[in-house]
């Protein structure tokens, strides 16, 4: 925390003194790191978002993971057991979605504005892949999807997480759980003044497996057949080796 804070201050100081062309931009923001490396010991991590604004206003940061299709299934009680009976597929669902702001979103922008910029989990546009399902059913499954993502720590709303140091410098701690999906993320920082989005800036953030994990995963996906043979050979070798010390037992 303290190291992050120090880095933030140094970086902000650099930004402030970066010359006249940069200083007159209304919003400047960056991350302490643009790469989250998932190594063998990975148990989640966080990066610090920091920046500066040119006057009073609210800062909202939206972090979005790569989009994917997600199937939501509902269990029913059938013949004594609980079994998946209904399903609904949603298209282009962000694999990670978190909103950070300096105060609750309702106080920062009107409902219309929040809907327009998809500010807040409730304003995410999650649409079924196939049209024609009744609206009540869609909203049940949509709520279930959001609840499950929140339970896994992949969707979050943190209303008081952007803190100001003085009037202009701000920082926010963006944390990711161990199960964070890999891919390219986008961190969108918005400056809101009197309920209107004045300006915005988008910064990429890459979440990627690194080292042995990445090599194994790539091996398993690219050359699955060879990976299968290698897995078998490795296990057989280990099994044979372990039988040697007990040969005469």
């Amino acid at each position: 925390m303290s190291r992050g804070r120090r880095m933030c201050l140094i970086a902000a100081a650099v930004l402030c003194c970066a010359g006249p062309t940069r200083a007159d931009q209304p919003l400047l923001a960056d991350l302490t790191s643009h790469l989250i490396a998932i190594t063998t010991g990975f148990t989640g991590t966080s990066v610090v978002l920091f920046g500066t604004i040119d006057g009073p206003g609210d800062v909202v940061a939206i972090v979005r993971g790569p989009e994917q299709d997600v199937v939501v299934r509902q269990k029913r009680h059938l013949a004594g057991i609980w079994i998946n009976a209904h399903e609904l597929a949603f298209a282009a669902v962000p694999s990670y979605y978190a909103v950070f702001s300096n105060r609750p979103l309702e106080q920062i922008a009107s409902a219309g504005m929040r809907g327009l910029h998809q500010l807040g989990i409730g304003n995410l546009r999650l649409e079924p892949r196939d049209a024609g399902r009744p609206e009540g059913e869609i909203s049940t499954f949509r709520n279930a999807l959001i609840a499950e993502e929140q339970r896994q720590g992949l969707y979050a709303e943190q209303p008081n997480s952007v803190s100001f140091l003085g009037d202009r410098l701000f920082r926010a701690n963006i944390s990711f759980p161990a199960n964070v999906p890999t891919g390219t993320y986008f961190v969108e920082v918005l400056l809101v003044r009197d309920g209107n989005v004045v300006t915005g800036q988008t910064t990429p953030l890459v979440v990627s497996e690194i080292g042995l994990n990445a090599d194994l995963n790539e091996f398993a996906l690219r050359s699955a057949l060879l990976y299968g043979f290698a897995a078998v050979a490795g296990a057989a070798l280990l099994g044979w080796l372990s039988s040697l010390p007990f040969r005469d037992a």
Binding site: V70, K75, F141
Partner: peptide, 10 residues
């Protein structure tokens, strides 16, 4: 179950 819903990435 506590949660009747489950999700799966396609």
């Amino acid at each position: 179950p506590d949660n009747l819903f489950s999700i799966a990435v396609e």
